[in-house]
Computed example of a mutant assay.
Amino acid sequence: MRTVKDVFGDACEDTYANLNWAGREESLESSARRLAASMSLLSGLTGLQWYRDAEDLQSRTSNFVPVPADPAVLVGILRTQLFTNWGDTAATFRFLLSRDTPSLGNAEAAALSGSVGSAADSWNQIQLELADDFPLGGPVETAALFAELVRVWQPDHARLSNSAAQKELVMTRAAYLSWTSNKAYAEPVSDLEVSVPFGDGSLRAARVWTPGHVVALNAELAAAGAPSFSKRPAQQDPPQFPSDTPDLARVLSTVAVPAAAGE
């Protein structure tokens, strides 16, 4: 399977998926079930084990221990990671997907972190960071993984990007892949991307997966009045999704990945 490096070439550094949503209070049990589903999806794709640092954040040492994708275990971990700010409480976490116990000399394949369960608009998000050798696949496989994470977390907004594209942009929807909730945003469309209806929103893919194309897409969306992240209701109306995945192969077959083609 193509790796992140195969897909993005020299622009692969700091490839990530970010999913975020407005205020949505939910139980630790609910967040743990979502987290377990995400972990199982990614470990099933790679065959690798999840770890976390069991040391206190104030400690200068690390003690990485395995983390099972078990909601009963994860809810206990989240309970120890509650963060309170201005009367609002969120649960934070950071897990590493690695071939061996993480260390300074052993780079992980992926990192999954987030802050969830908050009634405030600015705290709920999931960040998946992918190493250069993560088995991403082509646009269809990548979009299928991305769509499943969207289904699991029910965000307002999600995007797959990397530092080569983001350093040229302000924080907008423009990305290699994106999804937005129709309940949160009224989005313009662009001929520089293809779109697939998915639940209460649309999954969109840039027609060419290069930083320059994403920058051009961003300029076109901005000129068409694309909303900023903050232009959404402060409390989320969670989007709903069908149980089946949309026909991604038919729509994304035209998406070009120059790095994979050796260009």
Results as ranks from 00 to 15, higher is better:
R2L: 13
A175W: 10
A17M: 14
A222C: 12
A158M: 12
G199E: 05
W153R: 09
S31L: 11
Q235F: 06
S190K: 10
G212I: 06
L203N: 05
A256R: 15
G44N: 11
S27L: 04
A36R: 03
W209F: 13
S195N: 09
R204W: 06
L160D: 00
P188V: 06
Y51C: 00
D6A: 02
V116Y: 11
A164P: 05
G44V: 07
V215M: 04
A147K: 14
T92S: 11
A17S: 08
P135W: 07
A164L: 01
N182H: 13
T172I: 10
R232G: 01
D56G: 04
S243C: 01
F95W: 15
T254Y: 02
V75F: 01
A110R: 09
T92K: 15
G138L: 06
E129I: 05
S98H: 04
V170G: 11
N85D: 10
F241R: 12
L57F: 15
V73Q: 10
T3G: 01
S230I: 11
N18V: 11
A120H: 15
S243I: 03
E141Q: 13
R250G: 04
A261R: 15
D244R: 13
N162W: 05
D70I: 06
L74T: 00
T142Q: 11
A131W: 08
S253Q: 14
A36H: 00
E193V: 09
A223V: 02
V255S: 01
V208Q: 10
P239F: 07
S31D: 04
Y16W: 11
V194G: 06
N18E: 10
T210C: 04
A131T: 08
V73L: 00
G47M: 13
L42V: 04
L203E: 02
A36G: 02
E29W: 08
A17P: 01
L57K: 09
C12R: 09
A216G: 10
L35E: 02
T80R: 13
M39H: 03
A224I: 06
F241S: 09
A234N: 14
N182I: 02
A256G: 01
M1V: 15
A37N: 07
L252C: 02
W21M: 11
V189L: 10
Q127E: 05
V189A: 12
D53C: 00
A147L: 13
G44R: 10
